[in-house]
Amino acid sequence: MSPSKIPADLRYARTHEWVRERPDGTLEIGITDHAQSALGDLVFVELPEAGRVLGAGEACAVIESVKAASDIYSPVAGTVLETNEALVSTPETINQDPYGAGWMLRLRPAESGTADGLLSAADYQQILQSESA
């Protein structure tokens, strides 16, 4: 298996989500290359409704492959602004481009909601290594 890509400019959660801070202060969330590779070919994505208020660590989406289903947890607290509806008809986009076109949702972070407590790329890399050991 080829090593997973872990872009240095993103933040990560232990549950294998990534967070991108956008210029306007909103956050973009998706799943990591490692996560998509472990799940295999994705066949279904269920996304939250816009406007939903999420707590940090709250289950907010579901992705399915043929052999597994997995909950996606919001790494930070906030309100759902929009979701990537294109994934509903082409879930394989997450497999192909997990950090780009495969983004899942955008959040307006709550006052308490910040990406600061999340893992850096290096920390996440270390966690993956310790998991596979």
């Binding site: 070919d41 279904f44 399915e64 492959s65 043929v66 879930p91 394989e92």
Partner: peptide, 10 residues
């Protein structure tokens, strides 16, 4: 032969 489960689900 082995079946395409991914296609079946997508």
């Amino acid at each position: 032969r082995r079946l395409d489960d991914v296609r079946a689900a997508r």
